[in-house]
């Protein structure tokens, strides 16, 4: 059972402000989804290893500088003296 409080906590961890109505609705819907995902319970965890893409060190990026040309933060709407402006940390 997924409680409304649990949805609220998940909302906090995901930084999503949820209305009371949303909390109730999500609790029911996500409960349904999670019930379906519980199918995975019947698989034994042992034998198989997860698949991973593997590469050799030599295939990774070389340590050569290539500065980006253009203004990366041009799209930032709130700026001051070159800094990007964000909310208070208090």
């Amino acid at each position: 059972m997924i409680s409304n409080d649990e949805i609220k906590h998940l909302g906090w961890l995901s930084r999503l402000e949820l209305t009371d109505e949303e909390i109730v609705r999500y609790a029911l819907q996500i409960e349904e989804v999670i019930k379906y995902l519980n199918k995975l319970d019947s698989i034994s965890l042992s034998e198989v290893e997860p698949v991973r893409l593997k590469k050799k060190i030599s295939e990774l990026r070389k340590d050569d500088v290539k500065p980006f040309e253009g203004d990366v933060l041009e799209v930032a709407k709130n700026r001051k003296n070159g800094y990007v402006k964000g909310p208070r940390m208090v």
Binding site: A76, N78, P87
Partner: peptide, 21 residues
């Protein structure tokens, strides 16, 4: 989180967690 890109909004005076949410 609307800091580096996003829609028009002014973060001034908001506590950061509340702003993100």
């Amino acid at each position: 989180d609307n800091i580096r890109y996003g829609f028009e909004s002014n973060p001034d005076s908001y506590e950061w967690n509340a702003y993100f949410a």
